[in-house]
Design a binder for these strands. Structure first.
Length: 263
DNA sequence: CGTATCCTGACC
DNA sequence: GGTCAGGATACG
């Protein structure tokens, strides 16, 4: 699933493909993308220029010459594919961007949950987001302040983009494994020391993935048992203590952790 | 807090 | 052919 490191990698691909270029056409090919980006919005993009592509959490923001912003969120299975305008769309291509120079940027998304939306100048398309997981402003003091008074398990808090932006289900489990903290622990009961460890665990998970995009991004062929320490390793030995990794469900999502060394 | 919704492919 | 997976949002 694309989380902050994978979206950062994707944004770089999009920048290399189309930053500074003039849009020729944009087409939404799937009903759910057509709902998000109606025909009149898509058609109004012709002739606009992609001035810059920014990333915030898991959001990609295409800043346009007109002052408008094209907001892209990959959700579960979105990804960019770069080609030329004569490349036919794939079965899973949901939105197709074509540029004046013949470059094509395809949003491929098997589950069709990704969104592309157009926003007028002056509108911030991102919902309320906390600091990026990699940002210095995401520190132990911030985390503890966000958790006080909330009776929510730390795992769920890490998935809340208002607390910290860019973490998804995979790196939430990884970060808590690094921090040696039980995902069920209620946020307001964490010690300052544990908050420090969690922030460090988040940064470690993020920076490891950012440093090895080829190992994580689009690495379906590489088994999770190789890529991760906790995620998707139910029953396999903890890499620290060999205790079998446990899987539980929190807020409808799987959490993986070691009962022995995560307290 | 939990649960449903959106989607489709993978898996039994 | 039923279930599951999951990011974000909406709702009870």
């Amino acid at each position: 699933m694309p989380e902050l490191p994978e979206v950062e990698y994707a944004a770089r691909i999009a920048r290399a493909a189309c930053a500074g270029k003039t849009i020729a056409t944009v087409r939404a090919l799937h009903p759910s993308q057509q709902r998000a980006l109606p025909d009149d919005h898509a058609q109004s993009l012709a002739g606009d220029v992609v001035v810059a592509i920014a990333r915030r959490g898991k959001h990609q923001l295409f800043h346009l010459g007109s002052g408008r912003t094209l907001h892209v969120h990959f959700r579960m299975t979105g990804d960019w594919r770069v080609g030329s305008c004569d490349t036919p769309p794939h079965r899973v291509t949901r939105v197709l961007f074509e540029f004046a120079d013949g470059t094509q940027l395809a949003l491929d998304d098997s589950r069709a949950l990704a969104t592309v939306t157009l926003h007028e100048a002056g509108i911030d398309p991102c919902p309320a987001l906390g600091p990026d997981a990699t940002d210095d402003r995401f520190d132990a003091a911030w985390l503890q302040a966000q958790l006080t008074g909330r009776r929510t398990p730390i795992k769920s808090a890490l998935l809340d983009q208002r607390v910290v932006a860019g973490i998804g289900n995979i790196y939430a489990s990884e970060a808590l494994w690094y921090a040696r903290v039980d995902p069920r622990r209620l946020g307001y009961r964490l010690t300052p020391r544990q908050c420090v460890a969690i922030v460090a665990g988040v940064k470690r998970a993020m920076h490891r993935a950012l440093a090895h995009p080829e190992r994580y991004y689009g690495a379906e062929g590489i088994s999770a048992a190789v890529r991760f320490n906790a995620y998707d390793r139910e029953g396999k030995g903890c890499r620290r203590c060999r205790t079998p990794v446990s899987r539980i469900v929190q807020a409808g999502r799987s959490s993986y952790f070691c009962r022995e060394c995560q307290r």
